[in-house]
Design a protein around this nucleic acid. Sequence first.
DNA 1: ATACCGATTAACT
DNA 2: GTTAATCGGTATA
Length: 210
Amino acid sequence: MLPVMKKLGEEFYDRPDVVQIAKELLGKVLVTKFDGAITAGRIVETEAYAGTVDRASHAWNGRRTKRTEVMYGLPGTAYIYLCYGIHQMFNVVTNQRDVPHAILIRALEPVEGQAVMLQRFGVKEGQRSDPYFLTKGPGNVGRALGLHTSHTGSSLQGDEVYIGDDGLRLKKEQIGESPRIGVDYAGEHAEWLYRFYVKGNKYVSGKITR
DNA sequence: ATACCGATTAACT
DNA sequence: GTTAATCGGTATA
């Protein structure tokens, strides 16, 4: 069962420090409920994208297109885009209207609906006992939770997609930081320590914890 | 209208 | 360690 949680309200997302919010999201629980099927996971890896001043952001230099428009919208909105023609990447929009900050959710520790997740990966009963691959990496997170680019613009105040707080608090020393992944094209900005993760968690993407 | 490429993953050698 | 898969977004013309 899903733990008792308080849904994060708009005031959580409506803050200026996207890096701080990215850290605070660690330990929170991302939930989706589509067609009655609930899937949820504790967030263990995030990346901050700081809008127009961030070369790695889709909104760099004020780029504003049909795709990126949601980032300029209300805080606490889902921004989902397609990457490499395959992967549904789930982001949370933060900060006030017209400031296109976003946080990419890169990995979860499954909490609820693992059977549904397995179904979404086309895994048959009894097959592949190791479940670690399910929600490790942003593309897998999107797939496991049934997210699709068509869900972009959804409010996280609704019941289909939201993030909850069950009271778990991580200590500072449990949180690791590193440069973001896959943003080499961003020059110096690629070196910013905008990626955060729960140290030692098996679901965090990358080689070290694999 | 057309060309290039990516906030990735999994399956190879 | 290397690379194919795969297609919408974005820039260029």
